[in-house]
Design a protein around this nucleic acid. Sequence first.
DNA 1: GACCTGCTGCGGACTG
Length: 753
Amino acid sequence: MSATDAFNQLDPRIQRFLWSERWESLRDVQIQSIPLVLEGHRDIVIAAATASGKTEAAFLPALTRLLSSDRLGLIVYISPLKALINDQFGRLDRLCVELDIPVCPWHGDISAAAKRRFLASPNGVLLITPESLEATLCNRGTSVARIFERLDTFVIDELHAFIGSERGKQMQSLLHRIETIIERTVPRIGLSATLGDMQLAADFLRSGGEVAIVDADSGESRLLVKVKGYEEAKPEPGTSPADTEGEGMAALAIAQHLFRVLRGSNNLVFPNSRREVERYTLHLNQLCEGERVPNEFWPHHGNLSTAIRTDTEAALKQKGRPATAVCTNTLELGIDIGAVKSVVQIGPPPSVASLRQRLGRSGRRPGEPAILRGYVIEDALSKTATLATQLRLDTVRTAATISLLLEGWFEPPVAHGAHLSTLVQQLLSAIAQYGGLSAPKAYGLLCGATGPFSGLTKTEFLELLQQLHAEDLIMMDTSRLLLLGVKGEQFVNHYSFYAAFASDDEFRVVAGGSLLGTLPVSQMLRAGQRIVFAGRTWLVDDVDDAEKVIHVSAAKGGAPPLFSGSGGRVHPQVRQRMREIYASEAALPYLDEVAQRFVDQGRACFRTLDLGTQWLLESGKDGTLVTWLGDSANEAIGCLLVSRGVDASAGQLGVDVSRGERSWDEIRACINDLARSEVPPVEALLADAKNLLREKWDWALPRSLLQKSYASLNLDLDDAMSWLRRVSTRAIEGKPPMSSLGFDEAGRVLPSN
DNA sequence: GACCTGCTGCGGACTG
């Protein structure tokens, strides 16, 4: 189809609007999408880069459909962010005013009056979050059918942001519950960044259905990459703890370099954690102050108040005044901040996919390359250096990530998690919605063939009901109808119920009456302490435990605060590429001299330890299985060993093992035996496992379902078993064990003589 | 040794 054909299929009033807006032509993604959306019965994933016109690709034809009907229908647009709803409302309302189609933004900050107006006449375009949709189903059960009666199309923005989480399951369930109550399916259009495996996104949008895919990747643009290495001098052991002058010198040197190269243009700096955002923003602000130039560096992360974040976004958008944001992945999603010149990554990128998403913000103008500036910090080598330091793991992981990025590979989303935590929430919500539900009907709704939890058996569902009953979340009346229990009623009637994910308790940080942001309760603070927050230094005046407020005032000096959090997951492909880099001798063109020296030092250590062939590093009672697998497979191997009574857990290099009273030969025999045995059932594998509670409602699941849900997300048993089989063959062939070299309990490599 | 997201209904006081 040509651009003209596609344009001519749009409603004449929309055509006129595009003329008046001086659109030169439709983009490729729009040309492809328009005829598919106009068919009106297809589910479609539309994948393209940020700011490529995806929203219009869905809305121009969807609005054309609304205008072609006698009775105005309804488009429900679901967004993961309030900020995105506000952005889209601004763009969409200009067009829709011309078309006489009402647009209603609906989230927690929207007035009740605007919501009432929509409910009085539920048509046009509704822009809403999953949580607000949940509240609508839960609290307005009797009018849900009427509200969505005229529903014509679902549009789900940033689909990739939903895949693989409790919230994504919730979204699938909400779509399914609405279709169930209006007794027909509704076309679902998912808007997404390009994903490695588009079929995964299609299955997520409608499992088992036929989903059209529009993959309009605009072709890889040119990319300039340079990684600079910095060595951090470590104080010798024995120096007094107060004498840590040298600590953080590498960060300061990086800030000085950023100050020189970034000033005068717009950039994004990703230092991997909120704490480091604070550290670098402070350094950069102080450098600006010291040089008496206007500040160009602004912080952005999830614990800063909306006011501060909006300031940063506005600074980026403002033309004629350069601004750089030092940020976490809050600026990875599609909030409108305009194009940036370069993207800075400090430390190893969390994943190839995330690095790619971050880079999508740079090099967006034709002819301009995307620019990636990487920085890695390694400790100086010394007698006490750990194995991780000697192998230069961070630098090699950074190199592996960039090397995969340059090849166009990136991690596919993890779509196989069961997220049974969300089943608990959805069951309670459905009971509230229907004012009571029979067990078979509840099972059919949530676990039936097209439901969001279709893998669950009836037996498992009954087990869940019994557990929820025992927890007083649900009860059954004389007509065998499921109702909310006393505790269930309390949960459902509090607004915190609508979010599918858990959140920590937090203190508000207030300076002179204005809100700076929040800090987790786990961060202990006392009056008199000095902290860095929002890129500035503060004195803690008072901590009000009852009101959960920390009062601060401006001061000199202070340390960045700690935020809680648990680690991400490394994909096997990244570990395999790390191994290839270690085994090779080629120079990597995107590394500077220092970073290349780090890699060469890591390679030397790799050769000394013979890590290309050795798979067991012994060191006294401790050792490491060097697997080069992903974290999920390493954790699975750990569980398999634990099920045989061996103390083992996933580590940076593979699986860390403690032999206890056994010999290493006995550990090898155990591995051989595991390799030849059937994979044990999950209940046996996780029998003694503690700390499986990860998601909001996990505490309410029966043990067996908790194990099942955990394993579906966190354990890769297939990769684990095939590795065990591979090494057990090698063990039988009598490859020599690692014995001439060892390393001690702290993971330090011992001298070879 | 991570990061992010979101939130109702009601009662009471006030204004025009």
